[in-house]
Computed example of a mutant assay.
Amino acid sequence: MKRSIALLSALSVLTLLPATALAQDGLTVSPSTVRAAGVVGVELLGCAAADAVATSPGFPAPLKLEPNGPARVTGSTHVVAVAGTYPVTATCGGRTYTASFTVEEPRPLQWYLHPAEVEPGGMVTGGGDMNTGCNGAEITSPGFAAPLRFTRGGNFGRFSGDTTVITTPGTYTATFHCQGGTRTDTRTFTIKGTPPTTPPTTTPPAAGPAPKPKPKPVVKPKGAPETGGGGTAR
């Protein structure tokens, strides 16, 4: 008897609530928990606006939602690399929709660069696995003749590429860049040979006063007339 009374009471409350309160929130973020710098999909049901936008402090930038069926707009975006729970807001037809998602603590980036020692002007190979860290954009280094870009893909989200190193021996730092500039990681490699040494800088002696010009010698004229005793020749 008590159960029947409770059920009738709940039904009466539902009957009094407006239809909008009975419907689930039309904004969905999936997955609701995502790794740092991962990707989420955003879906808004009940909206046919062509200019719907979803915003969140967990998104690098506002996300424009595109029509994807009757009264449905969707989009996807990378999330930030800082762990936490973030709200998402979208407005359509004068109504505001809200949702939230959680960013997990970042895991160590999984990537490689080999060989660790390479001949001057030789080739190195680098790559990673987007499923255990992030989707790499490129690897850069002062020791590379050009950035290492990922031109090959594989199973389980693997990617790799090659580049040549410069000809100057030494130990250099290589930086792995996640897509979207969300995270970076570094490691070192060595170009074989003896690193060049920079000769010590010597300071030239200070210049003294300019030497005075030497006086020009006096030149006596040649062929001067001879002088006699004052007599007159006869």
Rank of each mutant, 00 (worst) to 15 (best):
S4I: 13
V124F: 01
G136Y: 07
V118G: 03
R187M: 11
A61M: 11
P18V: 06
F159R: 10
G126H: 02
K220A: 15
T55H: 02
E138W: 14
G229M: 12
I166Y: 05
C178R: 03
L63M: 04
P18Y: 03
E66F: 10
T77G: 01
A19M: 15
A50T: 14
P87R: 07
T168N: 09
T132F: 14
T28C: 07
G157A: 06
A6P: 00
Q179M: 11
A224Q: 12
V79N: 03
P142T: 13
A207W: 03
L65Y: 03
E138C: 07
D25M: 09
Y86D: 00
P142F: 06
T198C: 05
A61R: 14
K222I: 08
L148V: 06
T96P: 00
T102N: 02
T33E: 08
S76I: 07
K214T: 10
F176C: 01
T132H: 14
P18A: 14
T20E: 13
R183F: 06
Q110L: 11
P142G: 11
A49W: 07
P60Q: 08
T188M: 08
L14N: 05
G69K: 07
L65H: 02
T167L: 02
D185S: 15
C47S: 07
R152D: 11
G26R: 03
K216V: 09
R234G: 10
C178L: 08
P31D: 00
G229I: 14
A233H: 10
T28D: 13
F176I: 07
P209S: 14
P213N: 10
L113R: 02
H78E: 05
V13E: 13
A81E: 08
G127W: 03
P204D: 09
S141W: 02
V88N: 01
V124C: 03
K222V: 12
A23S: 12
P120A: 02
A54E: 00
Y172E: 08
E119M: 11
A224P: 09
A50W: 12
T55G: 00
A23E: 13
K64N: 12
T171D: 09
P205D: 12
D162S: 10
G126M: 02
G94D: 09
G94R: 10
A49G: 10
R234A: 14
G228K: 07
T182N: 09
P211Y: 05
